[in-house]
Design a protein around this nucleic acid. Structure first.
Lengths: 260, 260
DNA sequence: CCCTTTTCACCTAGGTGGTAAGAT
DNA sequence: ATCTTACCACCTAGGTGAAAAGGG
């Protein structure tokens, strides 16, 4: 739906006060959220195989850094209510959902709090690469943050989002009006509007933990739990299966039928 | 070098009068030009193989249109002399070099004029997709027109550049100052600057024709011709070999050593 | 005969989870 | 118990020329 406003609209500049954002793929996000969404974070990303030699310079065939992890599902929104002729910057950040560290209890198939959060990672933001652009451009089609990458490397120097593994996060989306006035800093607090979609919260992990169905921290802890004892897929890691089923790049791991 | 200005600078707006463009990969362009550069044009591009069924809608597994042909080498320039704070649009077009149609004479390994040019294709331009942007942005790094596609389909509806096969063309590059004044149309002729690099001229073909070394229309027709009878590569189609040797996507056709 | 279109194998470039081995 | 590294097969997506097939 068109929900998500986390901050009030009182005292906002007219260029953002009417701004609205609809989360795309909402039903997919909700499906993940019912299981307890997990997002993989990696430290160094991947390396080029040895066959790709250095082209020049005659050095060793040293590994070349490769991209870190995207989010899946990808955070995408449809915008409305912007001034078509005004400039806007779009960005995302990630807010810790609590001050806890978690561990996954296999025997109970559930997440357990396991102490206070680790020292918070450097707070970074991800600017949408098309920023700045006119409101008309942003509203023309779905805005996709598919270039956003996650890492657990506190020393990351590629500008990626740094998260602590085994901690919970809430993605946040911000629309910032580029104020052409001098002294625009003085109105900074009026010139942006933020959106939080609870169904996009997730647990950062270095490997999928949720190897069985669980109530899920993002779900309804007291809801009746239809524990599926499907003999065909016993103990199936449902988060993984849902990622495989819904992410085109994981098609290689699909077993069965062509119809999703 | 920093050559290329095709139009005088007299009467030009100060935002473009100092603009300069240096062709990147100039030595590669010259190497091609010495042989007589050929660029492939295609009609329909490529289609998805039959295994990729239509995802939804239940239609037949009909072929999906795929991109048409890029240029290789890619047209790339380094810009200077722009106003860092002003907006510019960058674009390219292609000018027929003469009013002739050509054919390739295999026996003499040379291009021959073969009548008047076919009716000119609809004159299209290709806007650099980052347009418009500030001068500072354009000058920050090399500007690459690698999204530009060539086609010989007169009815093309993808906005690609339409060229006649077996005709010669001169790529042109234009820097257009986005004039914020009202009535800016009245100054249009002052607000752009054009660049032509002779070493980037080429023959449009649907399949490589230059199967042997030739003086090349783009070269020096009267220069001494060192006809290479290299027994190791007799009758080697040199344009093709140079494309294979220098285009990363053609690596699959390279025979020999790793050192270019 | 000359030119165009189609199909193909083979690349570049990079996004998936799996698995095994090791480190902390 | 969790994290890191390394390597893998298998995808998406799309840019190459070769060769065969098609067309006037």
């Amino acid at each position: 739906g068109w929900a998500g406003e986390g901050t009030g609209t009182s005292g906002k500049n007219r260029h953002v006060s009417q701004a609205a954002a609809r989360l795309e793929m909402g039903s997919l996000w909700e499906e993940f959220n019912r299981l307890g969404t997990e997002m993989i974070v990696t430290k160094a990303g991947r390396w080029v195989p040895e066959r790709d030699r250095g082209c020049r310079g005659g050095g060793h065939p040293r590994p070349t850094p490769r991209p870190r992890r995207r989010m899946f599902p990808t955070f995408q929104v449809k915008l409305s209510g912007l001034d078509p002729l005004a400039d806007y910057v779009l960005l995302m950040d990630f807010v810790p959902l609590d001050d806890k560290r978690y561990r996954y209890a296999f025997h109970s198939s559930s997440w357990l709090a396991a102490g206070r959060a680790d020292p918070a990672a450097p707070g970074r933001v991800h600017f949408h690469p098309d920023s700045p652009a006119k409101g008309a451009q942003w509203m023309r089609q779905i805005v996709s943050f598919d270039k956003l990458k996650l890492t657990n490397n506190l020393l990351d120097d590629n500008g990626h989002i740094i998260l602590n593994s085994m901690h919970r996060y809430q993605p946040r989306f911000h629309v910032v009006f580029v104020d052409p006035r001098r002294d625009s800093e003085r109105f900074a607090h009026q010139n942006f509007k933020s959106f939080s979609f609870p169904e996009t919260q997730f647990m950062a992990v270095t490997a999928y933990q949720n190897h069985r169905v669980s109530p899920g921290l993002g779900g309804r802890p007291n809801a009746p739990l239809p524990f599926p004892k499907d003999p065909l897929t016993p103990l199936s890691p449902q988060i993984t299966q849902l990622k495989i089923a819904s992410n085109p790049f994981a098609k290689g791991f699909r077993d069965g039928d062509p119809e999703p």
